[in-house]
């Protein structure tokens, strides 16, 4: 009798452990697929971006910029180029990031009114991107290897079947203590992300507001980030999106920081 109970217990335990392992593996796979779909669509891409920042009092600020992206390696290093159009005080400023998936990113800014090229100390990926509710990391992505993932359940958001994944940073991180992602089962795009702080309080919510198919690639064309605590919200709309346009790596260098590449960035 005892033996039977023991054997049963072992069987149940290993079943549970097996399930958990499977779910962890699945979760990592889902998150890596999602990361690639969201941040690495195509080999490169370009778009015009409109960023609307609304604070808790309802006052609105708008940034407009053109953005180029080139993937050095899927899931790995990337290069970003941003050319600001609005508002007036930042217009014509160019900004470049060499995203390093294994170390610190490199960032440069070009201020045309003083003809100044300056590398920027980029220690804190969690700082705000141009005063919005998005961080630098939200723009370029946080590698899935930096967090542990668990498939919590399967659910539906706006009638779309989703995986619900809970992620916790492997190393203490001030960006969030826990993140719940709702990943579309068919496209692997994040439909919603909830960021919780170390007290378990909800800090920010990312929403995919609009999804379109562009050049055969399913793309979030409007996304928003709400800072629940601050009461502010930033909505980003992407237009004139193009993928696989053949951007060259040498475009992401000081020469083009000073001289925006007119083949891609019109006035």
């Amino acid at each position: 009798m005892k033996t039977v109970t023991f054997a049963l217990a072992i069987a149940i335990l290993s079943q549970v452990a097996g399930n958990r392992l499977a779910s962890a593996q699945d979760a990592v796979e889902i998150m890596s697929k999602s990361h690639l779909a969201y941040y690495y669509a195509g080999n490169d891409g370009m778009s015009e971006v409109n960023m609307k920042i609304v604070d808790k009092k309802g006052s609105e600020r708008v940034r407009e910029f053109a953005m180029l992206r080139l993937d050095t390696e899927d899931g790995g290093d990337q290069k970003y180029y941003t050319y600001f159009r609005k508002p007036s005080d930042v217009s014509r400023i160019a900004f470049m990031v060499h995203k390093n998936s294994t170390g610190n990113d490199q960032r440069w800014i070009y201020v045309p009114s003083v003809d100044l090229v300056k590398p920027i100390a980029a220690d804190d990926k969690n700082s705000s991107f141009v005063g919005s509710d998005f961080t630098y990391e939200d723009v370029s992505g946080r590698h899935w290897n930096e967090d542990s993932h668990t498939l919590v359940r399967e659910d539906a958001v706006d009638a779309k079947p989703v995986f619900v994944i809970e992620s916790t940073p492997k190393k203490a991180y001030k960006g969030f203590a826990k993140r719940i992602s709702f990943i579309d089962k068919s496209t692997f795009l994040p439909i919603r992300e909830e960021y919780y702080d170390d007290k378990g309080e909800l800090g920010r919510v990312l929403r995919a507001e609009k999804i379109d198919v562009i050049d055969g690639i399913t793309t979030v064309t409007v996304r928003s980030m709400e800072n629940v605590k601050k009461g502010s919200k930033t909505t980003v709309s992407f237009t004139s999106i193009k993928y696989n346009i053949g951007l060259k790596p040498d475009l992401f260098a000081e020469r083009y920081l000073k001289n925006p590449p007119r083949d891609y960035i019109k006035q």
């Binding site: 100390a121 220690d123 804190d124 700082s127 705000s128 001030k174």
Partner: peptide, 10 residues
């Protein structure tokens, strides 16, 4: 030498 000392402080 320049660095970010804290979020929003350089």
């Amino acid at each position: 030498y320049e660095r970010q000392i804290a979020t929003d402080l350089t």
